[in-house]
Nucleic acid binder design. Sequence first.
DNA 1: AGATTTACTATTTTT
DNA 2: TAGTAAATCT
Length: 664
Amino acid sequence: MSRIDFFKDLNREQYQVATSSKGPHLVLAGAGSGKTRTLVYRVAWLLSQKVPPEKILLLTFTNKAANEMISRVRSLLGVSEQNKLSLWSGTFHSIANRLLRIYGEQLGVNKNFTIIDADDSKSLLKKISKEFFNESHRPSEAIVSETISFAVNSDISIKESLERKFSEWLPLLEYFEKIAAEYKKRKQDSNLLDFDDLLFYWWCLTRHPKLGKLLAVKWEYILVDEYQDTNTLQAKIIFNLSQQHQNILVVGDDAQSIYSFRAADIRNILDFPKVFPTCQMHKLETNYRSTPEIVKLANQVIAGNQHQFIKNLKAVLENYIRPELVALPNNIEEARFIVNRIEGLLVDGLLPFNIAVLFRAGHNSQTLEMELNKRGIAYEMRGGIKFFARAHVKDVVSFLRILNNYQDEVSWQRVLRLYEGIGLIMATKIYQAIVRLKDFEDLQNLKLPISNRKAALSWQRCQRILEKLLAHQKRDVGQLIDLMIEDYDGYLKEKYSDYHQRSDDLEQLAVFASNFNNLEEFLSEVSLQESFTMKGQAKEKPETVILSTVHQAKGLEWPAVFVMNLTTQSFPHPLCTSEEEREEERRLFYVAITRAQKHLFLTYPLAIFKYNEYKELQPSEFITGLDSNLLSYNDLARSATYAAEDGIQYVADSDGFLPEVDNW
DNA sequence: AGATTTACTATTTTT
DNA sequence: TAGTAAATCT
């Protein structure tokens, strides 16, 4: 291992955290304070003190964040790819997945379980909820799903969860409870675990008389990143895990807690000193990321919140320019303005991936995407549909899941309904006949009395494909997928206009799958993988501008950041009415602002064109309340006029909006 | 009559 | 993409 000069590489506070003693530690890390860097050095420090890597558990918010941190530790220590560090690192969910494959059976969880994502879980819930409710007054499965999930993650009853989230549905409490129970049963029958189950069973492991001790002894050092966004269950898990050694270090920023809708509880970080009375508190308050102008603005934004640890974030960079607040006449002009400025920044020497445009909701970017396409600027949409969540990928994977576990109700539903003439009802009938089979190999002999001619034909075709896959199931997973594509290709071509792109995806999937030794191994990895990072598949695209939701931008930074669509209609989200929700929205705005290093643009349109209608908009309360001395205000709303004949034509020349040179 | 498909509309944030 | 209502098929 190469020697690292911890003194030289870190500031005083960071050094203290990285080299801190045993015992519990709470690190309150402001935005841009080098939190990740500090954690990376902490891990390197532990390893340099001869702590065996497998005795360290590093919990992060995304798997990508974990991978990046580990590779930084490796390069610090001079460890090559071949001598991988056998650290336990990743999200709570991916660690739970690994543990349950090893120890799950002792809790009654079959090792070969399949993980279902949020969409799958909703479709199962929808089916159950249809069986229980009569048509007229039924809560959407989004509501049912959120209620159940919130209850599990907060370790509260369905009743309490309903009270907290959707009190208007309380009269139907009984139904919610029945659905929750049935949902649980159906998952067990099909050997499926959803995201909540992963956490729940991990928690059960830590409470198990024998295994709990084993796990607590296993990890000597536990590090948790983004602690402000953990939920009750996660806090309980790490509490139990840390009982043996007490070496727990959590890092977070209460001002950046933005996941309460997913049951994240800000009290976890606020109450940490109470739960671990001997804990040492550290503050990282020096901001290395942003210019003083941006930091000042961020400080003012967050000061609008009542509930917080008061921090005083100090900037160290040189003064630069003030963030720009820009009013535009409508969403189309807003998009044009942003693209104009992007072009200006590119001329000034920034690279496309140095620039990000952030917005509240995924669909806020449509107009901007059109404009970027028109002007030939490549962009990458973050937080779009993940690779393994794309319809065609899920279709193919569902066939393989059936092969691996023919009791899997969710996959059968998906597969069967790809076929003409088979809908919800017929699929259910077929599934019920199949689970009655003792052995999936008996599939060939299964004769179903299907009256509908189309459906009967479809089932025959489906049966044939599955028999073919069954005959080759011992083959390489990549080959299985190739086999699958032969039959699926026709459907793909017919259904989707972007056939080629989807077909490429499937080829990539086959290549990715060849890396695995067998089907189970492949399927166990797929569900928690957002995209594949293995085997040099790194999809770095330095030539693209980044578009992202604010949530997805968590933990990232760019030299130039645009925050768009800052109107009462979208930011704060109009459904967020309680004071608590408003504070979270403000924290979200704070996160958006603090992503910027040098250039920050806040834009809002005063009108939107939608469904051929023109609707007026008001600027967001977050910007109307700001100190005008901290911003340079640019009102372009009145300088353009438009005529609405045959679509929308603009009189104003958007080139006129380009800033004067001395403005830069 | 019941099952399935198609056409149309509106969309918070996600491991 | 997902939910719903109306159209179409058996």
